[in-house]
Simulated scan of single mutants.
Amino acid sequence: MIERYSLTATPEKISERFSIDIPELFKPRYNACPTQLMPVITSASPQGISTFYWGTSPEWAKNKSLSEKIINTPVEYIAEKPAIKRAMMKTRCIIPADGFYAWKKAGKKTFIPYRFICTDQEIFSFAGLWEEYEDTDGNEFHTFTIVTTRANTMVASIYDRMPVILNKKEESVWLNKESTEEDLAFVLNAYAGERMNLYSVSPRISDVKADVPSLIIPAPAADQFGNLTLFD
Rank of each mutant, 00 (worst) to 15 (best):
E3S: 06
T8I: 05
C33H: 10
D223E: 07
S172C: 10
S125R: 05
T35A: 03
E59T: 09
V75D: 15
T119E: 08
N189Q: 15
P82R: 10
A79C: 09
S200H: 13
A79R: 12
L230D: 05
F111D: 05
A9H: 13
Q121I: 04
L228H: 12
Q47W: 15
V187Y: 04
F144M: 01
A221D: 04
A222Q: 10
F225V: 00
P82K: 06
A219D: 14
A9P: 08
I205N: 07
F126P: 05
N152S: 14
K64D: 03
P96N: 04
Y5C: 08
I94D: 02
F18I: 01
L228M: 03
F225T: 06
N63M: 08
V173W: 02
A222G: 04
L215E: 12
S172M: 11
R150L: 07
Q121R: 15
P82M: 09
T143A: 03
D135V: 00
M89S: 04
T10D: 09
I22L: 08
R115A: 01
R86D: 14
V75W: 14
I94H: 03
A44L: 13
T148Y: 07
F111L: 09
G107I: 09
K90Q: 14
I2V: 04
F141Q: 07
K104Q: 09
I117N: 10
P96C: 00
P23F: 06
A83W: 05
P113N: 08
Y114M: 12
I95Q: 06
I20S: 08
T229C: 02
S65Q: 15
I165A: 05
H142Y: 13
F141L: 01
I95F: 00
M1D: 00
K168S: 10
I78E: 04
W130K: 05
D21C: 09
E24S: 11
D211R: 14
N63V: 03
I14N: 08
C93N: 01
V212S: 15
I71R: 08
K81Y: 08
G193Q: 11
M88K: 02
P82N: 12
A102V: 00
I49G: 07
I117G: 02
A87L: 15
L228I: 11
E182K: 15
I216S: 15
S125Q: 03
D120L: 12
G193N: 10
A151T: 13
I20G: 02
L66Q: 10
E170A: 11
V173A: 01
I70N: 08
D183N: 14
S125M: 04
G138Q: 08
W54S: 06
D232F: 12
T56F: 07
E80V: 06
F231E: 14
N167I: 04
I165W: 06
R150P: 03
N152K: 05
V201H: 14
A32F: 03
P218A: 13
P39T: 11
K177G: 06
T56D: 15
I22Y: 03
S172I: 07
E181Y: 11
E171N: 14
K85T: 13
W103G: 00
E178K: 14
C118F: 12
F144K: 00
W130N: 02
Y159F: 12
A102F: 01
R29Y: 02
I216A: 15
I165Q: 06
A61F: 09
